[in-house]
Lab assay of single mutants.
Amino acid sequence: ETFPLDVLVNTAAEDLPRGVDPSRKENFLSDEDFKAVFGMTRSAFANLPLWKQQNLKKEKGLF
């Protein structure tokens, strides 16, 4: 299941849709939104070091 970017960005855990893991908001973006937000594919993002993934998520309001 995916959700629009505005539902996930800068949203407190208690305000997220049911079933969304607040530590993994990026997994609930569509592939198109994911690429638009991070400028890379999911596989490229997954290959980044964890610290870099976290920094990007913070920068984009998805942490």
Rank of each mutant, 00 (worst) to 15 (best):
R18I: 15
G39E: 09
N47F: 08
K52V: 14
M40A: 00
E1N: 12
P22K: 06
E1R: 10
N10T: 10
F38S: 00
D33F: 02
S23M: 15
F63G: 15
Q53Y: 01
T41N: 11
R18G: 12
L16G: 05
F3V: 06
N10F: 06
V7G: 04
R18H: 15
A13G: 08
K35H: 15
L50H: 12
P4C: 07
G19A: 10
A36F: 13
D33P: 00
V20H: 05
G61M: 04
G39L: 09
K35G: 08
K35F: 15
A44R: 09
G19Q: 09
K58R: 13
N55P: 00
G19D: 07
F34I: 01
D33C: 06
L50R: 09
E26A: 02
N55M: 14
A12N: 12
N10R: 09
F38Y: 02
A44P: 00
V9Q: 15
G39A: 09
L50W: 12
K60Q: 07
A44K: 09
F28T: 03
G61T: 01
A44Y: 09
K35V: 14
K58S: 08
T41K: 06
S43I: 13
E59C: 11
L56K: 05
F63K: 06
V37R: 01
L50Y: 13
E26I: 06
E59G: 05
E32Q: 11
V20A: 05
S30N: 10
K52T: 12
T11L: 10
D33E: 09
M40E: 00
N47Q: 14
D33A: 06
F34W: 02
R24I: 07
A13K: 10
S23Q: 14
G61E: 03
F3N: 04
V7D: 07
L8N: 04
F28R: 05
A13P: 15
Q53I: 02
P17Q: 02
M40Y: 05
K52C: 13
V20E: 05
S23I: 09
D6L: 09
P17H: 04
K60G: 03
A36E: 12
L8H: 04
E32M: 10
E59D: 10
K35N: 15
L50Q: 12
F34P: 00
K57G: 01
E14A: 11
D15Y: 08
E1F: 14
D33W: 05
P49R: 01
K58Q: 11
F3H: 08
E14S: 11
R18V: 14
S23F: 13
F3I: 07
K25C: 08
E1T: 13
D6Y: 11
T2R: 08
T2G: 07
K25Y: 05
Q53T: 01
R42G: 01
A12R: 14
M40V: 03
Q53L: 01
F38K: 00
V37H: 05
N27T: 09
D21G: 02
L62T: 01
R18C: 15
L50D: 09
K58M: 11
K60I: 06
S43A: 14
L50I: 12
E59T: 08
T41S: 13
N27R: 11
K57Q: 03
E26H: 03
D31V: 06
F3L: 12
P4Q: 06
R42E: 01
E32W: 08
L29K: 01
P49D: 08
D21N: 08
V7E: 07
E32H: 11
Q53P: 00
V37M: 06
N27W: 11
V20D: 05
L62R: 02
S30Y: 02
A13D: 15
L48R: 00
Q54I: 15
L56F: 05
S43E: 13
R42H: 03
K60P: 01
A13Y: 11
D15S: 10
D21Y: 03
P4F: 03
D6T: 09
L16Q: 04
F34L: 01
Q53E: 00
